[in-house]
Protein backbone atom coordinates (compact mmCIF):
# COMPACT_ATOMS: atom_id res chain seq x y z
CA UNK A 1 0.00 0.00 0.00
CA UNK A 2 1.14 3.52 -0.65
CA UNK A 3 1.67 5.78 2.39
CA UNK A 4 -1.19 8.05 1.38
CA UNK A 5 -3.57 5.09 1.24
CA UNK A 6 -2.47 4.11 4.72
CA UNK A 7 -3.20 7.62 5.97
CA UNK A 8 -6.65 7.57 4.37
CA UNK A 9 -7.31 4.32 6.18
CA UNK A 10 -6.21 5.86 9.47
CA UNK A 11 -8.42 8.87 8.88
CA UNK A 12 -11.34 6.59 8.22
CA UNK A 13 -10.79 4.83 11.51
CA UNK A 14 -9.65 7.63 13.81
CA UNK A 15 -11.28 10.66 12.28
CA UNK A 16 -10.05 13.93 13.67
CA UNK A 17 -7.23 12.36 15.68
CA UNK A 18 -5.22 12.54 12.46
CA UNK A 19 -4.52 16.23 12.27
CA UNK A 20 -3.01 16.65 8.84
CA UNK A 21 -1.32 14.78 6.07
CA UNK A 22 1.25 16.37 3.80
CA UNK A 23 1.59 15.26 0.21
CA UNK A 24 3.88 17.71 -1.51
CA UNK A 25 7.20 17.04 0.27
CA UNK A 26 9.44 14.18 -1.00
CA UNK A 27 8.13 11.88 1.75
CA UNK A 28 4.50 12.24 2.85
CA UNK A 29 3.78 12.13 6.57
CA UNK A 30 0.77 12.22 8.90
CA UNK A 31 0.55 14.35 12.04
CA UNK A 32 -1.40 12.70 14.84
CA UNK A 33 -2.77 13.81 18.16
CA UNK A 34 -0.28 12.94 20.90
CA UNK A 35 -3.01 11.64 23.20
CA UNK A 36 -4.09 9.06 20.61
CA UNK A 37 -0.60 7.93 19.65
CA UNK A 38 -0.57 4.62 21.51
CA UNK A 39 -3.95 3.61 20.13
CA UNK A 40 -2.97 4.46 16.57
CA UNK A 41 0.33 2.62 16.84
CA UNK A 42 -1.34 -0.45 18.27
CA UNK A 43 -3.85 -0.42 15.43
CA UNK A 44 -1.08 -0.09 12.88
CA UNK A 45 0.73 -3.04 14.35
CA UNK A 46 -2.17 -5.41 14.85
CA UNK A 47 -4.31 -4.76 11.76
CA UNK A 48 -3.48 -7.66 9.40
CA UNK A 49 -3.47 -5.56 6.24
CA UNK A 50 -1.09 -2.99 7.68
CA UNK A 51 1.06 -5.13 10.04
CA UNK A 52 3.69 -2.53 10.87
CA UNK A 53 5.92 -4.85 12.83
CA UNK A 54 9.01 -2.67 12.89
CA UNK A 55 9.70 0.82 14.20
CA UNK A 56 12.59 1.54 11.96
CA UNK A 57 13.41 5.06 13.12
CA UNK A 58 12.33 7.48 15.80
CA UNK A 59 13.70 11.00 15.77
CA UNK A 60 13.20 14.17 17.72
CA UNK A 61 13.37 17.47 15.85
CA UNK A 62 13.41 20.89 17.47
CA UNK A 63 11.63 23.59 15.48
CA UNK A 64 11.43 27.19 16.64
CA UNK A 65 7.88 26.91 17.97
CA UNK A 66 7.51 23.22 18.74
CA UNK A 67 9.27 19.91 19.18
CA UNK A 68 8.32 17.03 16.91
CA UNK A 69 8.84 13.33 17.37
CA UNK A 70 8.87 11.49 14.04
CA UNK A 71 8.14 7.77 13.80
CA UNK A 72 9.12 5.81 10.70
CA UNK A 73 7.19 2.54 10.67
CA UNK A 74 7.77 -0.38 8.39
CA UNK A 75 6.19 -3.72 7.64
CA UNK A 76 8.41 -6.61 6.55
CA UNK A 77 5.48 -8.80 5.57
CA UNK A 78 3.78 -6.23 3.32
CA UNK A 79 6.87 -4.22 2.36
CA UNK A 80 5.27 -0.85 3.02
CA UNK A 81 5.97 1.99 5.41
CA UNK A 82 4.41 5.04 7.01
CA UNK A 83 5.61 8.18 8.77
CA UNK A 84 3.83 9.56 11.83
CA UNK A 85 4.59 12.77 13.64
CA UNK A 86 3.49 14.25 16.93
CA UNK A 87 3.83 17.94 17.68
CA UNK A 88 4.66 18.89 21.24
CA UNK A 89 5.17 22.22 23.00
CA UNK A 90 8.77 23.29 23.49
CA UNK A 91 8.70 23.65 27.27
CA UNK A 92 8.31 20.26 28.99
CA UNK A 93 7.33 18.14 25.98
CA UNK A 94 5.84 14.79 26.96
CA UNK A 95 4.30 11.92 25.08
CA UNK A 96 3.51 8.28 25.81
CA UNK A 97 6.17 5.73 25.07
CA UNK A 98 5.67 3.12 22.35
CA UNK A 99 8.08 0.73 24.02
CA UNK A 100 5.25 -1.68 24.82
CA UNK A 101 4.49 -2.00 21.11
CA UNK A 102 7.99 -2.08 19.58
CA UNK A 103 10.98 -2.89 21.77
CA UNK A 104 13.38 -0.98 19.54
CA UNK A 105 11.82 2.21 20.91
CA UNK A 106 13.60 1.73 24.22
CA UNK A 107 17.00 3.02 23.12
CA UNK A 108 15.67 5.43 20.53
CA UNK A 109 13.50 7.21 23.08
CA UNK A 110 16.41 7.40 25.49
CA UNK A 111 18.39 9.15 22.79
CA UNK A 112 15.59 11.64 22.11
CA UNK A 113 15.27 12.31 25.83
CA UNK A 114 19.01 12.89 26.07
CA UNK A 115 19.44 15.14 23.07
CA UNK A 116 16.11 16.93 22.66
CA UNK A 117 14.56 16.69 26.10
CA UNK A 118 11.26 14.93 25.41
CA UNK A 119 9.84 13.10 28.40
CA UNK A 120 8.38 9.69 27.51
CA UNK A 121 5.75 8.63 29.98
CA UNK A 122 5.84 4.99 30.94
CA UNK A 123 9.36 4.32 29.74
CA UNK A 124 11.11 1.64 31.76
CA UNK A 125 14.54 3.26 31.99
CA UNK A 126 14.58 6.88 30.89
CA UNK A 127 18.10 8.20 31.43
CA UNK A 128 20.82 9.76 29.37
CA UNK A 129 22.47 7.49 26.87
CA UNK A 130 25.01 9.43 24.81
CA UNK A 131 25.96 12.36 27.00
CA UNK A 132 27.45 11.94 30.49
CA UNK A 133 24.97 11.67 33.35
CA UNK A 134 25.73 15.12 34.73
CA UNK A 135 25.63 17.03 31.46
CA UNK A 136 23.61 20.28 31.59
CA UNK A 137 21.02 20.84 28.92
CA UNK A 138 19.82 19.08 25.81
CA UNK A 139 22.34 19.50 23.00
CA UNK A 140 20.19 19.17 19.89
CA UNK A 141 17.95 22.05 20.89
CA UNK A 142 18.48 25.10 18.78
CA UNK A 143 19.04 27.31 21.83
CA UNK A 144 21.64 25.07 23.43
CA UNK A 145 24.67 26.92 24.75
CA UNK A 146 27.90 24.95 25.05
CA UNK A 147 29.36 24.93 28.56
CA UNK A 148 32.78 26.53 28.92
CA UNK A 149 34.25 23.63 30.81
CA UNK A 150 33.37 20.15 32.00
CA UNK A 151 34.97 18.67 35.13
CA UNK A 152 37.92 21.02 34.85
CA UNK A 153 38.60 20.40 31.15
CA UNK A 154 38.04 23.57 29.18
CA UNK A 155 36.19 23.29 25.90
CA UNK A 156 38.00 26.24 24.35
CA UNK A 157 41.07 25.63 22.23
CA UNK A 158 43.56 28.47 22.16
CA UNK A 159 45.35 29.37 18.98
CA UNK A 160 48.32 27.12 18.10
CA UNK A 161 50.61 30.15 17.81
CA UNK A 162 50.14 30.79 21.53
CA UNK A 163 50.97 27.15 22.27
CA UNK A 164 54.14 27.25 20.14
CA UNK A 165 55.32 30.35 21.99
CA UNK A 166 54.75 28.60 25.30
CA UNK A 167 56.79 25.62 24.15
CA UNK A 168 59.60 27.90 22.98
CA UNK A 169 59.66 29.58 26.40
CA UNK A 170 59.88 26.20 28.10
CA UNK A 171 62.81 25.23 25.87
CA UNK A 172 64.60 28.50 26.59
CA UNK A 173 64.31 27.95 30.34
CA UNK A 174 66.15 24.64 29.98
Amino acid sequence: MEPLQIYERLKGRFGERILETAEKKPDPFAVVDPAALLEICRYLREEPELAMDCLSNETGVDYKDRVEVVYHLFSYSHRHGAVLKVRLPREAPRVATVESIWKSANWMEREIFDLVGVNFEGHSDLRRILMPEDWPGHPLRKDFVEPQEYHGISTVRESPIVRLDQLKDQHKKK
Binding site: S56, N57, T59, V61, D62, Y63, H72, K103, S104, N106, W107, M108, E111, L140
Partner: peptide
Protein backbone atom coordinates in the same frame (compact mmCIF):
# COMPACT_ATOMS: atom_id res chain seq x y z
CA UNK B 1 20.14 21.32 6.83
CA UNK B 2 17.73 21.75 9.73
CA UNK B 3 18.14 18.24 11.11
CA UNK B 4 20.08 15.17 10.05
CA UNK B 5 19.61 11.81 11.68
CA UNK B 6 21.23 8.49 10.85
CA UNK B 7 19.57 5.33 12.01
CA UNK B 8 22.26 2.69 12.06
CA UNK B 9 22.21 -1.05 12.53
CA UNK B 10 24.66 -1.00 15.42
CA UNK B 11 22.42 1.18 17.59
CA UNK B 12 19.64 -1.36 17.45
CA UNK B 13 22.02 -4.24 17.95
CA UNK B 14 23.21 -2.73 21.23
CA UNK B 15 19.63 -2.56 22.41
Amino acid sequence: PWRVHVRTGSFAAMG
